[in-house]
Amino acid sequence: MSERLTRTAVERVAKLARLDLDDAELDQATERLAGMLHHFADIDALDLSAVEPMTQPYDLVNVLRDDVEQPGLDRQEVLDEAPDAVDGRFGVPPILGLEL
């Protein structure tokens, strides 16, 4: 698992995470992520083949809510917090460039 982490891979991760990083930040991120991944190789030696993954501390099951409507939020209170709002809706610039 401790294969070499390339700068190209880090660039792709930054794009996936939608983070603008400049060249210096990318270089630093590559170095630091590589350092961490190297450290995390300590679990490589463990035999985990028979171990079930654990996603939560407690195994709760069937936590369900009745289908009953509750009053929602006031639209104006919410839109007042929005960076851009027009005609009761949230405004965004043209939806482009979302594919990587």
């Binding site: 794009k15 603008d20 929005a82 960076p83 949230f90 610039p93 043209p94 939806i95 460039g97 979302l98």
Partner: peptide, 20 residues
């Protein structure tokens, strides 16, 4: 989009990248 700060940009993806 819905709350918090935004850095303006010419399209949504550029806005995401710059804001974050």
């Amino acid at each position: 989009v819905r709350f918090g700060s935004r850095v303006a940009a010419s399209d949504t993806n550029a806005m995401y990248m710059a804001t974050r």
